[in-house]
Write a protein that binds this DNA or RNA. Structure first.
Lengths: 171, 171
DNA sequence: TTGAGTGCAAATCCTTTGCAGGCGG
DNA sequence: CCGCCTGCAAAGGATTTGCACTCAA
């Protein structure tokens, strides 16, 4: 199976946190529920599951929806806030900027394989990885918040090992 | 065990790739062995094992050694080249810039626990993680190049859950 | 000899921030 | 009302790049 981007995240992916719960978390932490934050959250809830959105992506979606009152700065501030609250997960792939996605709870780990040559990514879930991470975090007395296994490799489309130069990634 | 940064990477850490092998890899890929590249590699070989160096770090070390003929741009270009050749590993922690370290072969995985509150990192090796990654990569027909398990969590120093605001990270 | 590699400085890209005004609770 | 949030624009920091020159092979 070659790496592709149109990966169907394995079966059971579905956000298991509701908007209601998020609103409650916001309230409980003394944060406010502004229209801007609602719009941004809405983008995540409407997005394909497993989709990684950059702040720029979110901003573009909102612009298309004529939510012109949401500035890019607010998107950045909001994703950071939601990330620190554990609502969003931060995903660092090889593109030079961060992506975010709904953190759907620790019961659903979220891992990636990135091809060093074609720069494509597939996601996969793995209970085994999750269990192992829990065990390790426990050993270190850490309350686990998120886990990511990142595998860098070369998919079969690029068997020519000496082809580095011509396949360097651009930002 | 609380999270600390002065962690001793578990036992057997020692670069198992030699300078000679690297020089050969460079030659084989048609790249040149310039003094600048030698100096940069030298920094990695002299550095404490397990140390993550940013391009800026490398540049500073070279400046102190009066290797003034190595520009920051060259450091960036070189680490990218070495990374794409599989000689360096890229480490994305939460600091807003990338770090690199000698990739010492797939037999020595390299994983991290990052505390969302205090922003400290510990590293650990885990054969179990490595084995699992190999198996997964195999399932996807990917030639494995590097593996990183990243666990985000909160270490026991920060049990106050509502303390988010005062502990936000700065770049 | 020759083209990959370099230094320099400017350019780019991503992200953060200062400030004045807006509005949620 | 108070003070968190926002928009805007400017600042900031990391990384890349255009260009002319250098030097490893």
């Amino acid at each position: 199976m070659p790496i592709t981007t149109n990966n169907k995240p394995t079966e059971q992916k579905a956000s298991n946190i509701s908007l209601e719960e998020i609103y409650k978390k916001l309230r409980d932490s003394g944060s406010r529920l502004t229209p801007q934050r609602e719009y941004i959250l809405d983008v995540f809830f409407k997005a394909d599951s497993g989709l990684h959105l950059s702040p720029e992506d979110i901003y573009k979606v909102l612009s298309k929806k004529n939510k012109l009152n949401v500035s890019l700065a607010t998107v950045y501030r909001t994703v950071k806030t939601l990330y620190l609250m554990g609502i969003l997960r931060e995903v660092d792939l090889a593109e030079g900027h961060k992506h975010y996605e709904l953190s759907s709870g620790n019961d659903e780990p979220h891992h990636h394989i990135v091809c060093l040559n074609c720069n494509k990514t597939i996601e996969f879930a793995s209970l085994e990885v999750n269990r192992l991470a829990l065990k390790i975090a426990n050993d270190y007395n850490v309350e686990i918040h998120d886990v990511e296994l990142k595998i860098l490799g070369k998919c079969l489309h690029f068997e020519d090992e000496n082809n580095l130069k011509s396949t360097q990634h651009r930002r």
